[in-house]
Computed example of a mutant assay.
Amino acid sequence: MEERETVDLLQPLWRALVVFRVLTWAFACFGVWTRWDGIVRPSGAVLQMAVMGVWTLISSIGYSRRWGRRNTRLAFVDLAVTVGCMYATLWAQPLLDIRSGASVLTSVWAAGPVLALAISRGRDGGLLGAATISLALLSLRGVDNAAKILSNVQLLLVAGLVVGYAATTMRQAGRRLREAIAAESATAERLRLSRSIHDGVLQVLAQVQRRGTAIGGEAVELARMAAEQEVALRSLMSTRPTVADGDRVDLCGLLLPLATTKVDVVVPAGQVLLPAQTAAELVAAVKEALSNVSKHAGPDARAWVVVEDLDTEVVVSVRDDGVGTTPTRLDQATTEGHLGVSQSIRGRIADLGGTVSVRTAPGEGTEWELKVVTA
């Protein structure tokens, strides 16, 4: 909770609202004092200012606390109390006088809940607050005076829109800042663990691999297992967060875990962002291509997965040094009912609006090139 509070960019808006509430209450009191002689029931005006002062104190305390800022109920209660205070002008002035031009004593103070709802609920909250206050003002002034209060209504609507938009933007910025802080913390911890693993576990595994290969016999199997674990650990150390911006993910973070002792994954230093669904389908196609390498390229075949970011499109190449085949044989496999190539690779990429090309020949391995647009 403490970390979330430190990156709450809405705090300045809440503090400004508290200051606005206090200043506008003082302004309303000053307005009563300047119009004292024109008020029919001065005691009613004093009572109304006292109620407004008490509520200003309560709401200001609430908006200064985390529970008041995070719980929108306070803003809705503020709206209801403010409307009640607007009608409390009837304690001081008859309705006929108000419709004849006498002031509604809440004055600018009535805009407080509009700003509170805009901050807590964004644009829609600001518009709801502005509409509610405007309707209350219209009911007091009367339909015949609608033109006279038009400027007040416009100001309320503009305030709700502008503050609501600003609050939404700042809330999104705060969320992204928290994500960035979390990613930075995770990266720092991963680097610390990587140094520890590199200085200890990886060196031991490399030593076991070398010694096992040199000794021969049953130790060769131990060397092979040590090599696999070394690759798995290095892959884990290089893995990075995949969620980057909303529903866009880092393709590299999804492909790096595919590395094994026989598969090398080469990616750009920076993130390659794609829509989550596009990235998932592209990774599935790469896995199918690697599966074909395992099944058909030969027991000693190695594979390479290479990612290229060309701004408008992403190219993923899956190449192996296996026995290879012929394009005709690939087409024949499809007609025989083997749909791995036609559906799991070509079909997936085609559904994404991308293209697939394959280069292969007997004894020269196979290379798949998968292209998808980045938008």
Rank of each mutant, 00 (worst) to 15 (best):
D309S: 03
D300G: 04
K287F: 07
R69V: 10
W36H: 03
A188N: 01
G353M: 09
R224M: 05
G353A: 08
V356L: 04
L370S: 12
L310Y: 05
G365P: 04
T334E: 00
G38R: 04
T325V: 01
D247E: 14
G129S: 08
A375L: 12
T56G: 02
V51H: 10
D144R: 00
A244W: 02
V306G: 15
P268W: 01
A280V: 03
V163Q: 10
S344P: 12
A232F: 05
E308P: 03
A80G: 07
L157Y: 01
S120D: 04
A182E: 10
K148N: 06
T374F: 03
L9H: 06
R70K: 03
L330N: 04
A188F: 00
G246C: 15
I61Q: 04
L282Y: 00
G101N: 10
Q154E: 15
E2K: 08
D97N: 11
T328E: 13
G62K: 00
R210L: 09
G298W: 05
C252R: 01
G122W: 00
E369G: 15
S139M: 13
S59H: 06
G354A: 14
L255S: 13
Q48A: 13
G112S: 12
T6H: 13
T326D: 13
L115D: 04
R121S: 06
S103A: 09
A50P: 00
G216T: 02
Q207G: 09
L9N: 02
S291P: 14
R70Q: 06
V108Y: 05
L273G: 03
V51T: 11
A361D: 14
F27D: 11
K295P: 10
A173H: 15
V153G: 12
I215Q: 09
D199A: 02
S238I: 14
V283Q: 07
L251K: 11
E179I: 07
L115Q: 10
A289T: 02
S344H: 14
G84I: 03
S60D: 00
V283Y: 03
G246D: 08
T34F: 06
E184W: 02
S344R: 15
T335Q: 04
V265Y: 10
T242L: 11
A45V: 12
I61H: 01
E313F: 13
K295M: 12
W109T: 01
L138T: 03
G270N: 13
A361E: 12
T169H: 12
Q332K: 11
T335D: 03
T366M: 09
Y63N: 03
G217S: 00
R240H: 13
S194M: 07
G216F: 01
T328Y: 02
T328D: 13
L95T: 05
T355G: 14
Q172N: 15
A289K: 13
L205Q: 10
V286M: 08
V143Q: 15
N152V: 14
E189M: 08
A173F: 10
W91Y: 05
R65E: 10
S342D: 08
V81T: 12
S196T: 07
T360M: 13
Y165A: 15
I215G: 05
